[in-house]
Computed example of a mutant assay.
Amino acid sequence: MAHKIIMLGGRRAGKSSILAVMLNALREMPGDLCTINDLTDYDEKVVDKHGIEHAKPTLRTKCLEIKSYLQKRTLIGTNTKFIVDMNRSNTAIRYNLQASIGGTARTTFEFIDVPGEWMRQNVPEHAELKKIIEESDVYIIAIDTPFLMEADEDVNSVYNRTLEISDAMGHMRTFSNEAKDKKMIIFVPVKCEKWMYAGEIDTVFEKMKLAYKNLINQWVENPDVEMWCMPAITSGGIQFYKLLPGDKVFRTAEQKIGEKCSKDPITGTIYLPDGQTLSPRRIDRLETDMSQEIDHTFIPLSWYETNGKAFTPQFSEQPVYHLIRFLVKKEVGLANLKLNNLTAWQRFKQFFGWTPPFGKNLPAFTSLINTLSARGLIKENGDGYHRITETIE
Results as ranks from 00 to 15, higher is better:
A211D: 09
K182Q: 07
G268V: 05
P124I: 13
P115G: 13
G31E: 11
L342H: 04
I66W: 11
S279L: 08
S367T: 09
P57R: 11
I324S: 00
T74A: 15
L26C: 14
K338G: 00
A168C: 15
W228T: 00
M1F: 14
K45I: 04
A99Q: 09
T61I: 11
H386K: 10
S262E: 05
R11N: 07
F205Y: 14
L210Q: 11
L286D: 09
H322K: 12
T78R: 13
P245V: 01
I83V: 15
N79H: 15
D181S: 10
Q255A: 05
Y304E: 04
F352Y: 13
E331I: 06
M169G: 06
P280Y: 07
A92S: 11
G77H: 14
K248R: 10
A55S: 14
I186K: 02
K338V: 04
N156E: 03
V84Y: 12
I378S: 00
I257F: 11
L215A: 10
P363I: 05
N90Y: 15
D152S: 00
F351R: 02
M230W: 02
R12T: 14
E317N: 07
Q314K: 13
G308S: 06
L33T: 11
R173T: 08
L301C: 12
M149D: 02
F351A: 00
R106T: 15
L163W: 04
Y271C: 07
T269F: 02
M172N: 04
R12Q: 13
T91S: 15
L70D: 13
Q292F: 00
E254D: 11
L327F: 02
S279I: 06
L59K: 07
P124H: 14
C261K: 05
I378M: 03
D181G: 04
F147M: 10
Q346I: 05
N96T: 14
F175C: 12
M227H: 03
N160M: 02
Y385T: 12
E305F: 04
I165H: 03
W195Y: 08
N370M: 11
T35S: 11
C261Y: 04
K191V: 01
A179C: 04
W195K: 01
L272C: 02
S166V: 06
N222D: 12
T366H: 02
I76D: 08
T366E: 13
V46K: 08
V328G: 06
F147N: 07
F315H: 05
D383F: 03
D154F: 01
P57T: 09
P357I: 10
E390I: 13
V328D: 07
T174L: 00
M86G: 01
I266L: 14
I140D: 01
T162K: 06
P223N: 02
N24K: 14
Y139W: 01
L64I: 08
I165D: 00
E200F: 01
Q350M: 04
E206P: 05
L148M: 00
V220C: 03
N381P: 09
M208C: 13
H126C: 07
T306W: 05
T371L: 11
K263R: 15
T35C: 12
K191R: 03
T78G: 14
E53W: 06
Y304I: 04
E65D: 15
P363C: 05
I83A: 08
H386M: 05
R94I: 15
Y95F: 14
I93G: 08
T269P: 03
H296V: 06
G237D: 09
G170Y: 06
V21Q: 15
P30V: 07
P273H: 01
V320H: 01
I388G: 02
E28G: 15
H50I: 09
